[in-house]
Amino acid sequence: MTGVRHPAQDAKRLVATASGTERESVAWPHRDLLSLEELTADEITVILDTAEAFEDVSTRSVKKVPALRGRVVVNLFFEDSTRTRTSFTLAAQRLSADVIDFTARTSALNKGESLRDTVRNIEAMGVDLIVCRHSASGAPYLIARNVNCSVINAGDGRHEHPTQGLLDIYTIRQAKKRIDGLNVAIVGDVANSRVARSNLHGLLKLGAEVSFVGPTTLVPKAFEQLGANIYHNFDAVIDRFDVINMLRVQRERVTSNVFPSLEEYSRLFGLTNERMKRAKPDVLVMHPGPINRGVEMSADVADGQKSAILRQVANGLSVRMAVMFLCKQAADVG
């Protein structure tokens, strides 16, 4: 074929969204997904739209498409996480990829091998995509610099957890039909939360207003510089929010000085039915899981009408399928 350019082959293409409207979309150029901070609003929207197209794969009789058939995905988890790993595994399997789990406990890292050597060895086995979780912020960047295959950050230290941010944003868009102009609260241990950072960057780029709510020790004033509102009195501001995303209380931090007692935290920041009465009637309640029932959220709120928690889990699959598919497509052209 010469000369003729079909519109579908242009860099800017028309994408049908679930609402049936057509709009322009840009191509996805990245081999890796390391953070939402480095993406543009358009690129985030490409992921969300692609995830929408993957939704039906999970509902049909054969829950598999051949898009990554013959490809190998490695879950490289240096920090425990059953649910994130399971979600990535299932997403990869629904794309027909082969999946290997590689956990720090069983690895040669315990024998003194460096991270760089470990990932190069893994790549030498013919891996196409590494899903990485590490307690050190920036570890996925180190890995990505040392391998040619795609790298997806599944959480690095306090830095980012981009697929969690994406699935949260996807869940919000699904419920509210927009992101632009929404007022989103992220409540809890923001200082230590990579989920909070990924949500912040993604939501701000798509035009939402983001507020961090929590005790002064966990929600430092410095976060204002990233573009968030900072509040320490939940009750005073709860009626402003369209979405309330409750972060998990990491119990290992409860004993430290920065954390009030569980009772005090729960009393001031826990989402209870009583507190929910002050929220907007159509507020969307989210939680990245696992929930400490009775601490950051009461059981009746977690299981209530306004809770999107299980939808978040289901959407995580679609979003991760989309991310793996897009990164692999970009890697193939190199």
Partner: peptide, 24 residues
């Protein structure tokens, strides 16, 4: 039907593949 995920030339077309929804 969107057939993008079933194409046999996905590796060649790269990021120009846009996955749209299948609604059956």
């Amino acid at each position: 039907l969107d057939i993008t995920l079933y194409r046999d030339d996905l590796a060649e077309i790269g990021p120009s593949a846009v996955v749209r929804t299948t609604e059956i």
